[in-house]
């Protein structure tokens, strides 16, 4: 079958893997996070007093494992959303592809960098 020229490898896996990982994470933890941080925490329902305290949250963000959890949750959720929104905008022909990439992958990349910097800034 030598008449078929092999196509150049796409770099899409670099965007698709975080998309897939983020999709898995958001399906597993998204609803629970919305319940805890969106409903239970503001109403103080069912959660221990210390959950909302600044020191408690800070200690979580200072723990290396806590940092990893926060980074994964924030960054991968965003990369998931970015890919999905990018493909939808591309299907809708919402604008030049490069602009759409900046508006989706760009945002995800920027927030990822900011998250890393903030997690480092809160110290260990």
């Amino acid at each position: 079958m030598s008449q078929f020229v092999q196509e150049k490898r796409s770099i899409s896996p670099l965007f698709w893997l975080p998309f897939g990982a983020g999709g898995m994470l958001s399906a597993l933890f998204g609803p629970a996070l919305i319940l805890i941080t969106g409903i239970l925490a503001p109403t103080g329902f069912l959660l221990p007093q210390s959950f909302e305290s600044y020191d408690h949250a800070r200690a979580f963000a200072q723990n290396p494992l806590g940092k990893l959890v926060l980074l994964a949750i924030i960054a991968l959720f965003l990369w998931h959303g970015a890919e999905r929104i990018f493909l939808t905008l591309k299907d809708m022909k919402a604008g030049p592809l490069l602009n759409l990439k900046y508006a989706t992958y760009g945002v995800a990349a920027a927030v990822t960098v900011v998250t890393v910097l903030l997690l480092l800034a809160v110290g260990f």
């Binding site: 092999q6 196509e7 150049k8 490898r9 796409s10 899409s12 896996p13």
Partner: peptide, 10 residues
């Protein structure tokens, strides 16, 4: 190898 390009699965 036949589907790893932009015109392939991606």
């Amino acid at each position: 190898d036949t589907i790893h390009g932009e015109d392939g699965v991606w």
